[in-house]
Design a protein around this nucleic acid. Structure first.
Lengths: 231, 231
DNA sequence: AGCGTCTCTTGAACACGTTCAAAATCTGGG
DNA sequence: CCCAGATTTTGAACGTGTTCAAGAGACGCT
């Protein structure tokens, strides 16, 4: 049996997401969400700490849809370049309906103190899942690369994906076609560079990249002071 | 003779910046700024469209200080790597005092609709100046590179700088030492890659990067609808 | 001096996100 | 069935950024 409180919670989040989709994030007020859901404003705040938190729902929805769809789409493919391309284009497909107000989401995500930040504690499960997808992209492919790069390539590809997302957020073209072009044309580049990483001249370069990433994450911030908000 | 209105304007912005520095952006209210400056709230809004706009002052201050300081510091140097390194470390120096609440600035800058966005119309003078600095970094150096890359390298370096800024915003380490490490260690990498761009195997790679950038900026967004706010 | 026009200034009012003490409802034990 | 405690719900109130109609000055012109 589903607890009553769970029902209220999902009623609120569902209503919120619907209104966000209909009218955009800024134009949807907490009062409107509460009224439409038939609860009080305070009740919404009993379940969600802030208006921002309500869109974590989208975050999860997009992430999950992307993971499953992408895994299906690359199932038969062996070519590294094709696999990576599919994963990124799938993300664009999944995210497209949310572009209008999804921007808002990613703007909030840019705040390092926000739990929505892709680097935050709270997003680490989602981040791990994304990195895992990239690991699979490599693992089941026929790519040949500098073995020293292999362990860290998933992280690098995830970073690359974050770059694509950043571009997408700023992309005003119809159907985000510029983002699609970016993917179509950078993926072969990346694939070629990954292949070239075996070259003797490039070895030191990839070695240094790997060691830099390791060193930087070793120095990772020791549990930030958790001040209430940015200050 | 300075117009009266200019005095009021700069009184307001000076007061705002002082209070931001003292108490942080979020904790400084428009009412407090107005009161401290001895004007009415409405008056502040006569000169500045929003609270965000008030921090454009910082933006400009950092950018200008960086341009002059960096140009001085690289004056005698010929080595490309050293020049690039100095330019970026200088930025970190100049920006350091503002890190605490400068984060806020760059969070707002992440909003594609904000005039503070580095890609916006309003920032294009500042952007041009930064790209110009990168052009000088290359021009007066002894760097050897694929000539086809030469025209576009400034833009690429600017993009790299934006990446460093993004990292810096999220950097919680003391004195932003992680950002410094990032610069110290990525600059040689970039310098090496730029040098390697003359290699036959890498030629197609750099060609494709250049042509991609050109194609993407050709497709540039045709005067966005300018809706009041993100939506 | 008087008048009209433009610039500058005011502060009350608005809409919003958020808080919180109080009320309502639910739950398990006697 | 009743009561105490926990959980859930309420909505008025607060503080905020922002707007706007109205007023106050400044300036040129006759």
């Amino acid at each position: 049996m589903v607890a009553k409180s769970e029902e209220t919670r999902s009623l609120i989040v569902a209503t919120a997401l619907r209104l966000f989709a209909e009218n955009g994030y800024d134009r949807t007020t907490m009062r409107a969400i509460a009224a439409e859901a038939g609860v009080s404003v305070g009740n919404a705040y009993y379940y969600f700490a802030s208006k921002d938190q309500l869109i974590q729902g989208f975050y999860d929805e997009i992430a999950n849809a992307h993971l499953t769809t992408a895994r299906e789409s690359i199932a038969g493919e062996r070519d590294f370049s094709a696999r990576l391309r599919t994963v990124l284009l799938t993300w664009l497909d999944v995210a497209e309906p949310y572009h209008r107000f999804g921007k808002q989401l990613f703007v909030n995500a840019a705040d390092p103190d926000s739990p929505l930040s892709p680097f935050s504690e709270e997003s680490s499960p989602a981040r791990d899942a994304s990195v895992g997808l990239m690991r699979d992209v490599i693992a089941d492919s026929d790519v040949k690369l500098d073995p020293d790069l292999r362990d860290d390539l998933p992280d690098l590809l995830w970073l690359y994906q974050m770059g694509v997302v950043l571009f997408w957020v700023h992309d005003r073209s119809n159907g985000q076609k510029r983002s699609r072009i970016l993917v179509e044309r950078t993926v072969p580049l990346i694939a070629r560079l990954v292949g070239l990483s075996r070259l003797r001249v490039l070895r030191p370069v990839s070695r240094e990249i790997v060691s830099l990433i390791r060193d930087l994450s070793k120095l990772d911030d020791p549990a930030p002071p958790r001040v209430q908000s940015s200050e």
